[in-house]
Structures are given as structure tokens and as C-alpha cells.
Write a protein that binds this DNA or RNA. Structure first.
Length: 388
DNA sequence: GATCCACGGGAATACACGGATG
DNA sequence: CATCCGTGTATTCCCGTGGATC
């Protein structure tokens, strides 16, 4: 964080009486610039990209770690640092290996597969990072974008190291697909898959990110609350308890803490109480998916999820209603048709954003099921832009 | 140079069919 | 067999783009 950002934060915090000084610092979906407690992993990653510091080009490597182990955090921090340390002043994510040349010759490009599912979107993302001029959002064919990418790399002998994060989640673009899309420029690109497992049939280097140990997670939480919460807003033993409960999963720990802080703030409390932390932990469902998976969904889907959660607070027992009924109730409160909402709900269940639970009802015909969120509802409602 | 239009991608919607269940 | 759920897919709509046309 630079001085300007610090000043901006002070300005924003001024007059604010709540305990939350900086929501972004507490948010489970925002990575810190300097990852805590991942020193040895960073060393391994630096070994892997080492050739770039000379005139070489790194071999492919995959980054693998369980949920909440900080794989995204380390890779974004690394790519960001490589860009600012080695990069030119072009403002793009890129690095030059030749002193004096204005253009980067090797780019480090981070692609979030959650937000890139089509070939078109992939080419567009990569191009808009590499080029200064704007890339069309539509009205042009996928082949056109591919040709632009080829002519950007090939004639100038430029190269790109492309991290493809979350390649192994439902509905995201796969590492294999990315390789395929980069086939025309295979000599100029290195793909770095980042996820919970390596791509099938992966034979190159794998860098494993272990789950956080308890004290490491405590350190992470302590660092976050020290700049995100007002002084004295949380007792240290509460931080340790959350770290213990989360069992190495930083996402779950941060989500519980964020939710607790949000609740305490809404109640205008000067500090987090045990009840807030209990509710924060309870808001994280079993087998919880990452909050960012819900926040990267299209706006309409987030709207549907918001309305679904609102039904519950409107007194409708959503856990007892069949999907058909829920879809009708949601459609009534939105611009979408019931058929479309039904489609969305099944689709979201298919992507593990919702869990389908069979209902016990009489009558003939196939048994209906209902749905339950597999994401933290309070944190989602707080962070989703459609809920404003 | 202004206007028009065809095209591509993507989202919303409709629809039909397969399958589970009493 | 009747009924209704769940899913795959065709169709329609919308919007941005960029080339054709005048």
C-alpha cells in the first residue's frame, strides 16, 4: 500500500464510528499484496520463473493446493511483483528482459477462469492485458481475436506466461482448452494451471501449496484485523479460536471473521462478541464454496441468489419449498420468467453453488427437491454489487 | 463523413423429451 | 399408466462492432 492509499483510507475512515476501518482488508475475496506465511512456496515459484531473469523462458508448471490454502494469493502476488519489479512503465502487466526496449518481451498474465469461460473471453482477457488499445467486447468473431493475439506475439518474438487460476472448477475454462486455444502461439506461451489438482495427464512440474498450519492462519487473521478493524475491536483469543475452527482454510476463517465484523458493525457494537463470532462461523456452510465463485457469477444469477435469500427473511421457509415454487416466488420479484429462474436454479445446483435436497412429499410423479446455499449468505449479501 | 446493415457472441426463453415415482 | 420433475437444446433477442454504401 502506498502513501496515497493510506491517506485515502484515513479520509474514508474519518467520521466513521464503526469498528470496520477497511472492508477490503477483511474481505475473503481480496488478496493482500504480501502473502503471509508462504515463504517456501514463493521460493519454489521463483525457481520456476527464474529463467525469465536471464534471457530464457520458463517451463510449464502447475500450482496445486487444497481450498483456502492461498494458491490464488501467492500466484497473484508473484505475478504482480514480477510486473512491478521487472516491468516497464507501460502500466501493463509485463516485464522486459532487455534493458532499454520500451516494450515488454515477456508478459506475466493472470487469468481468472471463473470469469473466463469461453474462447472469446479468453482471447479478449489476454489481449486487453497485453495491448494498450481497447479490445472489442463483441461484434467481432473469435477468430479475429485469435489472429490479433498471434500477430501480437509472433512477429516480435514476444512471450507470455499465462496463469490460469481455478481451471478445475465447474464451468470454468480448462487448462487443456487453454493449451488448445494457445496452439497457434505455443512457442511463445507458457501455461501455469492453478487449482486444487493438476490438469489430467499433467506431466510437468507441480508446486504443492500445503494447507495453513494453525499459527500461520492466526498470523494471517491478526494481520488483517490489525489494519481492517478498529483498535481493541477483537480479542486475540477470538482470533485464535477462529483459526483453530477453520482447520487451515483461510477462506473459511476470513469469511467467519468478516461476517462477525459485519454483524457487530450493523449493531453499532464497539467490539466483536462471542455471539457475533458464533454466527459468523455458522454462516459458513459445510463444504462451503469460495465466496468469489458467487461474486463472479453473471449479475442475473447473483440477483436470483439475493432474492432467494430475501425469501427466507420474508418468512418463507425456503428449505421446505420445491424448486418450482421457489422459482415462481423469485420470478414474481424479478424481471425474469419463472421458467428462466427454474433453469438458473438447476444450473446453479449443477455448479455446486446450491445444494439440492430431496423433499419428502406425497402425491404422484417424480419427487421434487429443494435447494440450500453452499456459500456464506451474509457475506454474499454484504459483498454482492446487485444488493444495493 | 454519415448512415445502414450484416454478423458474431452471449444471454434469456421456450420447448420437448427422458426418467422417476405412485 | 399418469404425472410431474429435471435436463438438453433450439430459438429468439439484444447489443457492440466494423465494413459497405451512398
Amino acid at each position: 500500500m502506498n502513501l496515497q492509499e493510506r491517506i485515502a483510507r484515513r479520509q474514508a475512515a474519518r467520521g466513521q464510528t464503526g469498528i470496520i476501518l477497511d472492508r477490503d482488508v477483511l474481505s475473503p475475496t481480496v488478496h493482500r499484496e504480501e502473502p503471509v506465511g508462504r515463504g517456501s512456496v514463493l521460493e519454489q515459484l521463483l525457481d520456476a520463473v527464474e529463467p525469465t531473469f536471464g534471457r530464457g523462458f520458463p517451463e510449464s508448471f502447475a500450482v496445486v493446493g487444497p481450498p483456502g490454502s492461498g494458491t490464488s494469493a501467492v500466484i497473484t502476488a508473484l505475478f504482480r511483483s514480477l510486473t512491478t519489479t521487472l516491468g516497464e512503465t507501460t502500466g501493463t502487466i509485463g516485464t522486459t528482459t532487455r534493458a532499454g526496449s520500451g516494450e515488454p518481451t515477456t508478459w506475466f498474465i493472470y487469468v481468472d477462469a471463473r470469469r473466463v469461460s469461453s474462447a472469446f473471453a479468453f482471447y479478449r482477457t489476454v489481449l486487453s492485458i497485453m495491448t494498450a488499445d481497447s479490445v472489442p467486447t463483441g461484434g467481432v468473431g473469435t477468430e479475429e481475436l485469435r489472429d490479433r493475439l498471434v500477430s501480437h506475439l509472433e512477429p516480435h518474438n514476444r512471450r507470455a506466461v499465462i496463469a490460469i487460476d481455478h481451471h478445475d472448477e465447474p464451468e470454468t475454462i480448462t487448462a487443456d482448452r487453454v493449451q488448445e486455444l494457445l496452439d497457434p502461439v505455443a512457442q511463445h506461451t507458457t501455461v501455469v494451471p492453478v487449482g486444487q489438482s493438476p490438469p489430467p495427464t499433467w506431466e510437468d512440474t507441480i508446486i504443492e501449496v500445503p494447507p495453513y498450519r494453525r499459527h500461520e492462519l492466526t498470523d494471517i487473521l491478526t494481520e488483517r484485523v490489525s489494519s481492517g478493524l478498529a483498535t481493541g475491536a477483537i480479542e486475540h483469543h477470538h482470533v485464535r479460536e477462529v483459526a483453530e475452527w477453520a482447520d487451515g482454510n483461510a477462506h473459511n476463517a476470513l469469511t467467519a471473521l468478516f461476517t462477525a465484523a459485519t454483524l457487530a458493525s450493523q449493531e453499532d457494537q464497539p467490539a466483536l462478541k462471542s455471539t457475533h463470532l458464533e454466527r459468523g462461523k455458522a454462516d459458513v456452510p459445510d463444504e462451503c464454496i469460495h465466496l468469489d465463485r458467487t461474486l463472479s457469477l453473471p449479475e442475473t444469477r447473483q440477483q436470483v441468489l439475493c432474492t432467494l435469500l430475501a425469501l427466507e427473511s420474508a418468512g418463507i421457509k425456503t428449505c421446505q419449498q420445491p424448486i418450482r415454487e421457489l422459482a415462481a416466488a423469485i420470478a414474481e420479484r424479478s424481471a425474469l420468467t419463472a421458467g428462466t429462474v427454474k433453469r438458473f436454479l438447476y444450473e446453479l445446483a449443477d455448479k455446486d453453488v446450491l445444494t439440492r435436497v430431496p423433499l419428502e412429499v406425497g402425491g404422484s410423479g417424480r419427487r421434487p427437491s429443494t435447494i440450500e446455499p453452499r456459500f456464506p449468505p451474509i457475506a454474499f449479501q454484504t459483498l454482492t454489487p446487485v444488493n444495493e
